[in-house]
């Protein structure tokens, strides 16, 4: 079992509620999402492991067991080309779950006409392996789901 943590405070919602079919239809993988608080904040590592990919708007952390979790900061935010995102870690870093990775402001993303909702995806996982998905208010670092 891998506990996967909420990368930021907000409301835990179902992946199916994400306004992008790539995520809502679980094309990338199963998981959950956080509708973040509309205030400046940091996105933290959902699991302990190595940051194998770090973009301003998305990152992937792979645990020692080889399991990878993707955090995507808002929808279509690749179009922002990094503006409004500050990296607090580097690709290749080993980080404990809960360590800040990117700072950003969901309110700015929303003001720019994009959804700030953050999918958190278990990569290469069967849908049945995502368990105990949280719903409702979460703090950064609260358990979002269990990867069984």
């Amino acid at each position: 079992m891998t506990p996967v943590l909420a990368p930021m405070a907000g409301a835990a919602i179902s992946l199916s509620a994400v306004p992008d079919p790539v995520f809502s239809q679980a094309m990338v993988g199963p998981g959950a999402a956080v509708d973040p608080a509309r205030e400046p904040g940091v996105a933290v590592a959902p699991i302990s492991g190595r940051i194998v990919k770090l973009h301003p708007h998305a990152y992937v952390i792979v645990g020692p067991d080889g399991r990878g979790v993707l955090v995507h900061l808002g929808i279509d935010t690749v179009q922002l080309k990094g503006v409004g995102f500050d990296l607090l870690a580097a690709e290749g870093d080993l980080v404990p779950a809960g360590q800040p990775v990117v700072s950003w402001n969901p309110a700015d993303v929303e003001a720019g006409g994009r959804s700030p909702i953050c999918p958190v995806v278990a990569l290469d996982a069967p849908a049945s392996s995502v368990l105990r998905v949280a719903a409702g208010p979460v703090h950064a670092g609260d358990e979002l789901f269990q990867w069984g």
Binding site: G29, V52, K53, V60, G68, L70, L123
Partner: peptide, 10 residues
């Protein structure tokens, strides 16, 4: 067949 591997190729 691995989304993790393909995303990591960047």
């Amino acid at each position: 067949k691995s989304i993790l591997s393909v995303l990591s190729l960047d």
